[in-house]
Nucleic acid binder design. Sequence first.
DNA 1: GTCACTAATGGACGATCGTCCATTAAATGT
DNA 2: ACATTTAATGGACGATCGTCCATTAGTGAC
Lengths: 217, 217
Amino acid sequence: MELLNKVENVRGRKRGSKRDPDASKQLLIKATLDSIADIGVTETTVSCICERSGLSRGMIHLHFGGKDNLLTAAAQHFSAQYYSEMDKMTDLGSDASPEDRVMAVIEADLSEALLNPRSTKIWHAFRGIASSHPGIARYSSTQDQKLVETLRLAFKEIAQKNERDPNLVDDATAGTLALLEGMWVNYLTDMQGFSRRRSVDLIRRFLCGLFPEKFKL
Amino acid sequence: MELLNKVENVRGRKRGSKRDPDASKQLLIKATLDSIADIGVTETTVSCICERSGLSRGMIHLHFGGKDNLLTAAAQHFSAQYYSEMDKMTDLGSDASPEDRVMAVIEADLSEALLNPRSTKIWHAFRGIASSHPGIARYSSTQDQKLVETLRLAFKEIAQKNERDPNLVDDATAGTLALLEGMWVNYLTDMQGFSRRRSVDLIRRFLCGLFPEKFKL
DNA sequence: GTCACTAATGGACGATCGTCCATTAAATGT
DNA sequence: ACATTTAATGGACGATCGTCCATTAGTGAC
């Protein structure tokens, strides 16, 4: 019996135990996301998920009450993971300039940690079924309030006083997010020809047009 | 027997006849697209398609050889219809300025004819399954060569001589398409809060930043 | 060691999936 | 009018879907 396996996790269960409901849940969610990335949502069946997770068929109904809820939980987990990673990569010091904070968001969103084959396929798969699946729709929006506010606040600081255009801040925020969205689509469509650096530069160029004195090419 | 029903169509069949293979094909494709827009790809079964089209179950296998081929044909039809409509709306006189031609593409892409609830749902549904469905992937790319070239040519004319930045034209093209892509996502996510005019203005602002003397706010 | 608890198992179940084909019926050719 | 051709029908079919539950087995308390 290995010592490491006796370490208790948050819920008080033994890690590596043969009975760990939380670990099983995570295993099912991970298997679901992997399957979606590999073979698509349409082909992701409960049999397929069970096979990938190494767990038995009954587990989905036991832990999630059905496949649909598992799918929703997977979408939620995926979304949470994205924003957790985004937070980690944009946690600059509190004295960072708003320009740097904006660029940090852009570079994080286009980094390999967030933008990779697996995440892109999962992201677009969820979005594709979101409009007919209310539970998933809640987690398939880029308009995550926190991220939007981060950008809007930074742009407001950048625009500051001498700008009197009321739509400038909103346009900068919406435009940046829209461009990032488009970059993800480009990546999904043509991973070989995609360049992270050129994508960052393209968005920088957009910002350079809005705030010529703040962003430089 | 009505006279109008005797008019022959391109294939020599009688229009409105009880036996018109082409009409049946179109009916199946339309029913498929409608179903995808209404209830999503996942729920779009052959029974559902047959019910909507009013045709019998055997028709799909007869005309398309299977559900998968019908789905591909539907994606192709949808794509063709998009570009046909786009062509129609951007057919300015040959003396139109490149700026006008660019704006025509943008306004067409964001017009109600192209950007509406049905088309957005279908578009994103197809894109969501494209990465695991090679047949559909061919028709789920915005990077339609013709549209890309239209934009690139116009931007090249705009940039003309005094611009020496080698990436300017490419960035303008890619940026415009990426922004349009983002606008479609915004529309899908929040149809109520979406404004076509504001979206056009946002993209115009992007172009104004790249070509300050050519595009005006 | 025994008990109570519950995570986990895996097969049974009816429903529904997509495919296929024997049959029907409408249009055309002679 | 009859024969030929083929679009169209609709149910049969096996496979697979997701759900559910009787059972097994791991775990902590006593």
